[in-house]
């Protein structure tokens, strides 16, 4: 079992002093090598789930397990990526990719070698000495993925990594991420607002309710070509899956 949430509830204390339940009684499991997406209305606690997996916050109740060990703090098993690329503007691309390795006592030469390898995986060869501002948004996200992969995490957490990109870049990037992730065999948790994206990229999709978020549906995507979203896109079943998600999110009722 790569990742497991056991009856996890997270409450925040707001600035006003009262308690806000972000997620309530969330349970799910993700197998090794699986690609699972989480969809749900805005503010339902998706990012909170990600932060708890990364060990940035502790659950108020319940347990988060990564590789069968309870998560008690930031740890080497997990790498995460957000909508913002979070590249350090003062570092060149290659030393950004090395960033995650520095605190882990990896020797300098080996750091560079691993970073170079990931740079190539993410189709950024030749951009090692560029600075982030010299790259396009899509390239910056690829650099962020390279940085995430460089630490060789067991699980990759992606929080809407494509949502700031234009439609075409998004498609290409989804494809390149999917290929890279499939090749490395990493377990992945993708948080997204884009229902079609969830269908194109995942083995399984978890649907969360309104806040306090809890898992209301779990949909297995029975389609081939997980590593090639561009090819999945044209399959007729995609719209059926998207329609299912649509229904679970009760979007029509809300629009009414």
């Amino acid at each position: 079992m790569a990742l497991e949430f056991r009856n996890v509830t997270k409450k925040f204390t707001t600035n006003a002093g009262d308690r806000l339940t972000a997620v309530s009684d969330v349970s799910f499991r993700v197998d090794e090598g699986e690609f699972v997406s989480v969809v749900g209305p805005s503010g339902c606690g998706k990012s909170t789930i990600l932060s708890m997996t990364a060990g940035l916050y502790q659950p108020s109740d319940g347990e988060v397990l990564v590789s069968d060990a309870a998560v008690t703090g930031p740890n080497a098993h997990v790498g995460f990526m957000l909508q913002k690329d979070l590249l350090l503007p003062w570092r060149s691309i290659i030393s950004n990719i090395e960033f995650g390795l520095e605190a882990r006592g990896v020797a300098k030469a080996e750091r560079r070698a691993r970073a170079m390898k990931e740079l190539e995986h993410c189709q950024l060869a030749g951009f090692d000495s560029h600075y982030p501002y010299q790259l396009s948004g899509g390239m910056r996200q690829r650099a962020a993925l390279a940085r995430t992969l460089a630490i060789d995490p067991e699980i990759i957490l992606l929080d809407e990594p494509f949502s700031a990109l234009d439609a075409q870049t998004k498609l290409l990037l989804q494809n390149s991420f999917a290929g890279t992730i499939a090749k490395t065999g990493k377990t992945t948790l993708l948080i997204t607002h884009d229902l079609v994206e969830a269908v194109l990229m995942s083995d399984r999709i978890l649907v969360l309710s309104e806040r306090p978020g809890t898992v209301v549906a779990e949909i297995k995507v029975d389609l081939p070509k997980r590593d090639r979203p561009i090819e999945r896109r044209v399959m007729p079943e995609v719209s059926d899956y998207a329609a299912q998600l649509f229904k679970h999110l009760k979007l029509e009722e809300k629009a009414a």
Partner: peptide, 22 residues
């Protein structure tokens, strides 16, 4: 940027590491 600090923390940087590197 809080997210940048969190990223550094997730990469196992301690308080001083976060200070000097972020």
């Amino acid at each position: 940027d809080r997210d940048l600090v969190n990223l550094a923390r997730a990469y196992n940087l301690g308080r001083l590491g976060v200070f000097w590197k972020v």
